[in-house]
């Protein structure tokens, strides 16, 4: 079942990106009579690469900063900011990604930059919230033991707290990345190069064939990325299982 899912996802994505012409017979009925069936204003491979690049550009700093903030407010020195940080995160969640994207345009103009800014800002919250939950979820007895065996605060963080919080941190990154993949699609309304271009082109030219191509491809990529994170989370959550895989391999 799982294997089938991987094969379908990877196969669909790969075929759509590399051999879009293969789908012409399937999509033909959806295209307007005499109109183009396969999107040809840019290669899907190029748009996919650009789409993923937008997400990467935003998510790397987003992850680093959100993690740093979560670590800060869970240290004794930053503890007084914790209630404020949580309330802000709670309020921040009510900002829709589209709003952040739209408001980035007046600041930065059209194109890649407002999109990356919006993805970056919106990505902070889920990662921060999950990292916070992960770091605060480390059992008290484990923290006590870590102090009692003579770990320095730094050793506690690196050797105990972060590894134990890792599954939840990855969960947060996964949520942010999935949202970012979706928001990057909308980024094409502010002239960022992404797969949203194909869908928007389909909507504006009344060509469902484009909408389906773009939609299926972005959907497949999102689910694929989601599943890859699923594997990472599984690996982080079950040290026993991965240790066995490693020794076997």
């Amino acid at each position: 079942m799982t294997a089938l899912r991987w094969i379908v996802l990877v196969g669909m994505t790969g075929a759509l990106v590399l051999f879009p012409a293969l789908f012409e017979p399937v999509l033909r009925p959806f295209a307007p009579a005499g109109g183009p069936v396969i999107y040809d204003r840019a290669t899907l491979a190029g748009l996919t690469a650009s789409h993923l690049m937008l997400v990467m550009l935003a998510m790397v700093p987003s992850t680093l900063i959100a993690l740093a903030l979560a670590i800060l407010v869970t240290r004794p020195a930053g503890a007084e900011f914790l209630p404020t940080a949580r309330m802000l995160a709670n309020i921040g969640q009510t900002f829709p990604p589209v709003a952040v994207l739209a408001l980035s345009v007046p600041l930065l103009g059209f194109g890649t930059r407002p999109t990356v800014l919006a993805l970056f800002l919106y990505g902070l919250l889920p990662i921060f919230e999950n990292a916070l939950a992960g770091l605060r979820g480390v059992p008290g007895s484990v923290l006590l033991s870590a102090r009692a065996v003579g770990m320095t605060p730094r050793q506690m963080l690196v050797q105990v707290e972060m590894p134990l919080a890792l599954p939840l941190i990855l969960e947060g990154i996964r949520i942010s990345v999935v949202i970012a993949l979706s928001t990057a699609t909308i980024g094409s309304t502010v002239a960022a190069r992404s797969l949203g271009e194909v869908i928007i082109a389909g909507l504006t030219s009344n060509n469902p064939a484009f909408v389906i191509q773009g939609g299926v491809l972005t959907g497949c990529i999102a689910v694929l990325v989601y599943d890859v994170f699923g594997l990472l989370i599984l690996a982080a959550r079950r040290p026993a299982a991965t240790a066995r895989i490693r020794s076997r391999g």
């Binding site: 484990v142 033991s145 065996v149 003579g150 770990m151």
Partner: peptide, 30 residues
């Protein structure tokens, strides 16, 4: 603090074993 604690054994009720490490690595932590 750190060297003091490394020189004193400490056992608590829930044991506080590090859940992400094997028993052997837990024993070898100090």
């Amino acid at each position: 603090e750190v060297s003091l604690r490394q020189g004193i054994g400490y056992v608590i009720q829930g044991y506080g074993l590090f859940p992400h490490w094997t028993a052997a690595r837990n024993i070898g932590v100090v």
